[in-house]
Write a protein that binds this DNA or RNA. Structure first.
Lengths: 305, 305
DNA sequence: AGCGCTGAAACAAACGATTGCAGTCAACGT
DNA sequence: ACGTTGACTGCAATCGTTTGTTTCAGCGCT
C-alpha cells in the first residue's frame, strides 16, 4: 500500500478529510473555495498522495475495472482487440482485466462470476455463442456488457463486429474474377455468429453471381482451428465434390486446409485457390481479406454508452 | 452489485455477521462449531452469497489482483505467457490484469502507479530494460514482483526466462554443421537482457567453434521489430562484411531480414541461411528455434514464492 | 437590528467484510 | 459447590473514501 492517505493530505492542508476529498475531485471541486482547492491540491502533490481505489470503490460501488473475456489470447485475432480496448480504457481511467476462458464454458462462467464479485464495471465479451446462457444472464443483470466479434441470436446486448457480409462478398468476387466456378466454403462453427453469418453470406454471394449451390458446398468445421480445418478438408477430399477454390471461415481453418492440400500433392495456387479470413499476421501468401483491427476503436463508442 | 451480503447470510443462519465470516473462511473455520459452519454455509449457498471482493480487499489490504505488464500484446511472444500466467493465477484465486505499455516508459509508469493504487498484490514485468528505474522502485517497494523474459542489470528481482545461451549455441551449432563459417548476428536491442545475453552467447559460441569474430559481425537492431531487422540488414548489405548465414535476435528481426534479402534478390536458403529465435507461430519456413512457451509454467513457482 | 440566505467547511454515516477482544456457558477438576 | 478452563460467538472497531446533513459566519435587505 501507499502510505499517505486522504487524512494526511487533509491535515497538511488544514482542512477536514471530507473537504479534501471534494477539493480533489474534479466535479465536486466547485463546492469548495478556489483557495482551499489550491491548498489541498498542493499538499496532495507534495505528499505524493495516490487515492486508494479499493476504498473508493467500496464507497462508490464502482471499480473502474472492465473485463474482457476471450476464448484464447493465443489466437492472433484477439490481441489487437485487447490492445485497442486497453488503450481506450486506460485513457478513461479504467483498468482492463483479461480473462482467457480456454474455450471452456465452465471456466468462463467461473471467471465472470469472480469478476462480478469484484464489482467489475463492464464486460467485453468475445466468447459469445449463438445461443449463450451466460450472455443472457449478463443482459438480465445491471452491469453493462458489450459483445465483440461474435453476436448472439437474441441480440439483447450491443454488438461490435466487422462487416462479414461484404467481406465474404469481396472474397467471392475475387475468386469468381479469377475464373472459379466451383467454390467450397469451409465454414466456422455454426454456434458462433461469425460462422453462421459468413456461411449465409457465402450462399448469398454465390447466388448473386448466378452460381449453383449445393449443400455439400458448405462444410462446417467444429472450431476455428487448424485441426478442424484440416479435418474438414480431408472429408471434403474424400467426398466426390469437385472444386477449384476454397473459401475458409477464417485464416486458421485456411492454414489447416493448405496443410492437407499440400500433403495430398495439390498445388496451392495452381490446382486449388484458398482464401482465408481475418488478416492474421504473416499470411501474405494468402489473398487479402478483411481486417478486424478497427473493432477495438469502435468499441469505445459502445463502452461510452 | 450482487445484493446478498454477509449480513443477510448471517441473519438467515441466525448468527452474527462476524461469526458468519469466520464460518465461511477456510482457515478461520476451526474457530466455530462444525454445526454452525454447516448452517452458515448452507444459508450462503441458498442465498447465492458471493463475497464482495472490494470490501474484503479494503479490510485485508489484499486485492487478489496480479498485474502483468507487457510491451505489446500484439507481439506473438507474449500471449502464451499471458495465458500461462492467467491459468495459474485464476487457479489460485487471483485475477490477472493485463497492461500493454505500448513500449512507452511513460505509459508504463502511469499504469503501474495506477495498479499500485489498486493494491495490486503482485507484478509480472515483461518490459524490463537492462537499466530500469521503474523496476528498481518496485524492488524497493513491498509488493512482490517477478521479471519475466527480460532481466535487469541489478538482479534485484526474481527472474524467469528461457535459457538464451544454449538456445543460441544450438542455433550456431546447426549453422556450423551446415558448413557456414561466416555468420552474422542481428542482435536485439542492447538495453534488454535478451539482446545482450544472446549477443554474448553468440560470441561465445563462435569462439567455441574456433571461428573468428569481428565487431562488424554483430549488428545491433534498436528494437525487436521487422522494421529494425530490415534496417540492420540493409546496413549490413551496404557494408563490405561477407556472410553466408544470419542469426537473428528474434523472429521478427529475422522476418525483416528475409524481406530485405528477398528484395535484393538473394535466395533465402540458397545464398544466405537465416535463423530466427522464439518459435513464433507459422514460421515453419525458418529453421527451428527455442521455445518460450515453458516460461509461464515456471513462473508459477516464482509466483508462489 | 433582525431575518433569511448563501457559500464554505466540518461532521458523521455509510460501503461490506475481517478480526482483536470480551463475554457466555457448559464441563470439569478438586 | 466453586473456580477454572476452553470452546464458541457476539461486539465493535477498522480499512480509506465519498457524500448527505449540519453548522457557521458573513452579508444584504427591510
Amino acid at each position: 500500500m501507499q502510505r499517505v492517505k486522504l487524512v494526511d493530505v487533509a491535515r497538511a492542508a488544514g482542512v477536514h478529510p471530507g473537504t479534501a476529498s471534494r477539493a480533489l475531485s474534479a466535479d465536486t471541486g466547485g463546492l469548495v473555495s478556489p483557495d482551499t482547492v489550491r491548498r489541498v491540491v498542493r499538499a496532495a502533490e507534495r505528499l505524493g498522495y495516490v487515492p486508494n481505489t479499493v476504498a473508493r470503490g467500496l464507497r462508490t460501488a464502482r471499480s473502474f475495472l472492465v473485463a474482457m473475456v476471450v476464448p484464447d489470447v493465443t489466437n492472433p485475432l484477439f490481441p489487437p482487440m485487447v490492445r485497442g480496448a486497453e488503450q481506450v480504457l486506460s485513457q478513461a481511467g479504467f483498468t482492463l482485466v483479461l480473462t482467457d476462458t480456454d474455450n471452456d464454458a465452465g471456466t468462463e462462467r467461473k471467471q465472470v462470476q469472480q469478476l462480478r464479485a469484484r464489482g467489475t464495471d463492464g464486460f467485453l465479451i468475445a466468447t459469445a455463442r449463438w445461443q449463450d446462457q451466460l450472455v443472457e444472464e449478463l443482459a438480465d443483470g445491471r452491469v453493462p456488457a458489450v459483445l465483440i466479434n461474435r453476436n448472439t441470436s437474441s441480440h439483447r446486448l450491443p454488438y461490435v463486429g466487422g462487416d462479414e457480409r461484404t467481406g465474404i462478398a469481396v472474397a467471392v468476387d475475387h475468386l469468381v474474377s479469377l475464373g472459379h466456378r466451383r467454390i467450397v466454403h469451409l465454414a466456422g462453427p455454426q454456434d458462433t455468429s461469425t460462422g453462421r453469418e459468413r456461411a449465409s453470406a457465402f450462399r448469398h454471394a454465390l447466388r448473386t453471381h448466378g452460381l449453383p449451390i449445393t449443400r455439400a458446398q458448405v462444410r462446417t468445421c467444429d472450431s476455428y482451428t487448424e485441426r478442424a480445418g484440416a479435418q474438414a478438408t480431408e472429408r471434403l477430399l474424400a467426398s466426390d465434390v469437385e472444386f477449384t477454390a476454397l473459401l475458409a471461415g477464417n485464416d486458421l481453418i485456411a492454414l489447416g486446409a493448405l496443410a492437407v492440400l499440400a500433403a495430398t500433392g495439390k498445388r496451392c495456387p495452381g490446382d486449388v485457390s484458398v482464401v482465408g479470413f481475418n488478416d492474421l499476421p504473416m499470411v501474405d501468401k494468402l489473398t487479402p481479406s478483411l481486417t478486424t483491427v478497427t473493432l477495438p476503436l469502435r468499441e469505445m463508442g459502445a463502452l461510452a454508452a
